[in-house]
Design a protein around this nucleic acid. Structure first.
Length: 112
DNA sequence: ATCGTGACGAACG
DNA sequence: CCGTTCGCCACGA
């Protein structure tokens, strides 16, 4: 066994696992992922985990399906990344057509 | 081990 | 309504 006594799996892996479960055409929020992990307050940590994704990993994990509670992309300064995310979601059939770059959670939201 | 940081969220004025 | 502040959690140096 590699790690017989690893009591808690890396938070990152848990986040990735949940993100992978998000069906195409749907999106969820950082806070909800944290909630699924059992830490509704760990939204920041979730964002931190996705930020730690490497390029190689990005192609395996649908990070673009995770947005903030406001129904929009929340990047701080990486506008380039934000535009990319928006573009990918557009390809998957998700549109920010509520105005002001907001999307309708009632239509695209995935909150199991 | 302590400090600072960050793709958040909710509350406050 | 808007902008701002505080709290939350995990990770790296």
């Amino acid at each position: 066994m590699k790690s017989p006594n690893s009591k808690s799996p890396n938070f990152y892996e848990s986040v990735y696992a949940v993100v992978k479960k998000i069906p195409k055409g749907k999106v969820t929020t950082y806070g909800h992922i944290a909630l699924l992990l059992g830490n509704p307050r760990a939204a920041r940590a979730v964002g931190y985990a996705l930020n730690s994704l490497k390029k190689d990993r990005e192609s395996k994990i649908p990070w673009q399906r995770v947005i903030n509670r406001q129904g929009r992309i929340s990047f701080k300064g990486d506008t380039f990344r934000a535009e990319l995310q928006k573009k990918i979601l557009h390809t998957e059939g998700v549109f920010f057509d509520l105005g002001d770059d907001q999307l309708d959670f009632g239509k695209y939201g995935w909150f199991p």
